[in-house]
Design a protein around this nucleic acid. Structure first.
Length: 297
DNA sequence: AGAAGGCCCTGACCGC
DNA sequence: TGCGGTCAGGGCCTTC
């Protein structure tokens, strides 16, 4: 599921269950996901209280009172589900009843909530591209996963002025530049394709072509920045995209996939009324790019 | 230094 | 129905 809007949607689903809860018990079904779990992972978290659940790029960050930050990445196929006994004990209308472990359940957080109720948060990840790590708060900025991350594509930080120095002189295709987490953090394949379509920009164009020789952003770069922010904001409002049968932590489905203009639409007509072009699929740095060669220049 | 490609892993889907 | 090939939302590591 996991580009920024999906991770943000997961965060919003988990936040009311995680925040304020004590991790009564933490069960690992295996010693590793993509990477081994940190040393004494369960021991360092059990008995501690989660004070907040935030997000940076595609990472979920659980802050632990007097403890480390728990960083969680969903990889390609990671998902969380919330289990609770009894209706009304946990917010969210699609909370699962307690059940037997399912295939590919790897981590189970047993939580004691402030109101005295119990709940569990289960991490399931068939492909095991996800991972979890523990970071001491003072080390966060220097941590390899976070120190090189670029601009968050939410809020006003993403602008033509901010992108110009990052794109200046770069011959890499726009598609690759937008996927580079060191420049903009949180975009993935789907939303890059969608934002480029909205901005009428070709994914093959050199990133540096949107920067003036004096280093100033061209108008088109500013338009692109606007469209990236809007695409991400629209997707978050829609609860992210649900491909195949992925669901939010609360069990609800995202529905931004119904708003795709190019992603997965190879061979179909361009959605821009006046265009008349056809969506094509090419491969860039090993991944599919969907775009309309007629109106994206 | 920066960029391209391989690779980690499972599951779904397609064509034969 | 079964089998092999292909592809998938990410990002680290190696190679060039």
């Amino acid at each position: 599921m996991p580009e920024l809007p999906e991770v943000e949607t997961v965060r919003r689903g988990l936040q009311p269950v995680f925040e304020g809860a004590r991790i009564a018990r933490l069960h690992l079904a295996r010693p590793d996901l993509r990477f081994p779990f940190p040393e004494r992972f369960s021991e360092r978290l059990e008995g501690r209280v989660v004070t907040s659940l935030s997000r940076r790029a595609k990472y979920l960050l659980a802050e632990i009172a007097d403890g480390p930050i728990l960083a969680m990445h969903l990889g390609m196929s990671g998902s969380f589900r919330i289990e609770a006994n009894g209706a009304g004990t946990v917010p969210g209308s699609f909370v699962h009843p307690r059940s037997e472990a399912r295939l590919h359940d790897h981590v189970r957080f047993e939580l004691a909530r402030p109101d005295g109720s119990a709940a569990a948060i289960v991490f399931n990840d068939p492909r095991r591209f996800g991972y979890m790590s523990l970071i001491e708060p003072g080390d966060f900025g220097a941590h390899p996963h976070f120190r090189d991350l670029g601009i968050e594509p939410t809020g006003n930080g993403l602008s033509g002025e901010a992108l110009a120095p990052l794109f200046a002189g770069k011959a890499v295709p726009l598609k690759a530049a937008l996927l580079d987490q060191r420049l903009i953090a949180g975009l993935g394949n789907i939303y890059v394709c969608e934002a480029l379509w909205r901005a009428k920009l070709s994914p093959r164009r050199a990133a540096g072509s949107l920067v003036r020789r004096n280093g100033a952003p061209t108008p088109r770069l500013s338009v692109l920045a606007d469209h990236i922010r809007e695409t991400i904001a629209d997707a978050i409002l829609a609860g992210g995209s649900t491909l195949r049968d992925h669901r939010q932590a609360t069990g609800e489905l995202g529905y931004f996939q119904h708003s795709f203009n190019v992603y997965g639409r190879e061979g179909q007509p361009c959605r821009r009324a006046e265009c008349g072009g056809t969506v094509s699929r090419i491969v860039q740095s090993g991944r599919s790019t969907f775009f309309c060669a007629s109106c994206q220049r």
